[in-house]
Design a binder for these strands. Structure first.
Lengths: 185, 185
DNA sequence: TCCGAAGACTTCAACAGTAAAGTTCGAAGC
DNA sequence: GCTTCGAACTTTACTGTTGAAGTCTTCGGA
């Protein structure tokens, strides 16, 4: 026995190996379904690592980039309240408070009381924040185009269509799930 | 003016609205690419929420479920070291130590020193852990089949094939990214 | 007018994760 | 055989997130 007998296999399993292992333990598993789901999960994880690396070069974190994106999507004048931000980002209001603190300290956003309703707070993107978003977006979109390079135009269309169909299905199943990730019932 | 004038639009943007907003700020964006990427991200988030809800019913967290899955994939006798687990899960060894502590306390795994090499530690799935995995897997796979219900068999195949092609592309681009999520260069 | 309730954040304590330093055991050289 | 090096995990200090309690403002009724 030349190989280390006690070490099972210090070998990162491929997608197919993973699915085969599941099937050995759970006969009813549909390998085609599992392949889609597992590929989706792995792909997403790798992409987040890649995004993290890229935006780190701009001196921001993935978490901060998410806030910038949300404010940009809200459109000019790029203002949202902490509560609304928290809801869209899937965070608790407490976490949002802290994140805004940090980002305000870095000059990416401003935080002010709403003069019309002094209970509300307005978080607004600064010019610097908008610039960071643009730089991050440039890097991200070039990465994304590179990623999809091997897919023909009609494949991209089909892929986008199928994914949005799946998305619609989960959204219908859990109407509120745009909310907090921890909103577990 | 009946509507609140200062509130931009407390309205969760749809995928298409989001992409349209990006395009207003960044002309060079390819909407087809962005649609694929954004749908993928949203879908993944919703699915994680759904998984979290389901496994919570079994008294475990998503994080714990990931550990169970990794041990099951490793095959009988369901043993891996903390370091290997950490690498596969994208965690630091320190986080792994803590997570194993918790799971050992709950009886899902055991943690023992390797008698052949007392520097090493062996984490092994217990019967209870294996049962939990099976229950979680049952729920997950039925959720997943329901999710893919609207896709014809050939669509599922095409989707799986495209996703694995994308996965291969990111993996080639960052050969080590199976590692820690924070391994940002 | 005043009071009570609700809404929108913030604060606080506890928990999960990271980075870096510490510990322990095994292996390789002198 | 002793020592030094390195590998594998643990510990420590700090960051970010959660859940619950607290604060402040507004609104509606007595």
């Amino acid at each position: 026995m030349p190989d280390t007998p006690e070490t099972p296999g210090p070998h990162e399993p491929s997608l197919d190996e993973q699915i085969a292992a599941y099937q050995r333990e759970f006969r009813d598993l549909d390998p085609q379904v599992e392949k889609v789901v597992s590929a989706l999960g792995r792909l997403n994880r790798r992409m987040n690592v890649a995004y993290g690396r890229q935006v780190a070069a701009l001196g921001i974190s993935n978490a901060e980039w998410e806030v910038l994106k949300t404010l940009v999507v809200s459109g000019a004048p790029y203002r949202l309240g902490p509560g609304e931000l928290a809801k869209r980002l899937g965070l608790t209001p407490a976490a949002m408070t802290h994140r805004i603190d940090r980002m305000a300290g870095e000059g990416l956003v401003t935080r002010d009381r709403d003069e019309n309703n002094r209970v509300r707070v307005i978080v607004e993107l600064t010019d610097e924040g908008r610039t960071k978003w643009l730089e991050a977006m440039r890097m991200a979109s070039s990465f994304e185009e590179d990623l999809l390079q091997d897919l023909a135009a009609e494949e991209r269309a089909g892929l986008g269509e199928m994914l949005t169909r799946l998305l619609r299905r989960v959204e219908d199943a859990q109407p509120d799930a745009g909310g907090r990730l921890t909103d577990l019932d």
